[in-house]
Amino acid sequence: MNRRFLRGVLIALELLALYVLENTPRMFPALGGVRPLLLTAAAFSLTSEQVSGATFCGAVCGVLTDLADGSVGVYAVGITVLCYAQSTCLHTSFRRNLPSLWLLSLAALALLCGADALVRLVTDGIWWQRFWLRAGLTYLCVFPLSVLNFRRERHEA
């Protein structure tokens, strides 16, 4: 129980730090004016947790990502569903290892970006150059974060 609580606290601190890092102006280096969605990458990297935990983390990350942009919407719902699906796949159909997580994260991110692009096309408009760059950078961030989160889970289990 204590270990589970400690893990929860560590994950909460990690997400809080990433939230501040993601949204503070000029704190995280931008490439071509674009910064990665660190919370989205963190949500997918945490899908090796139990399905319920991964779903909850996905919801928190999605809500925080959306709140930073104004109101809760596509990312909150999208990441919640995708984290549930990814975590279920990792616990049933796939081997629960890092390559599986990276592969599933790629598919999940592609679906999320697709939904985001559709919404942007009918609302604010889209700047494709930055859109793809941000998607790429976000996926790159999945690697270190998944190594960090996966290791921690194995160590604490």
Partner: peptide, 11 residues
Amino acid sequence: VLQQSALDDFD
């Protein structure tokens, strides 16, 4: 300026 959302393509 308090926040700059990483989601906003147009700064």
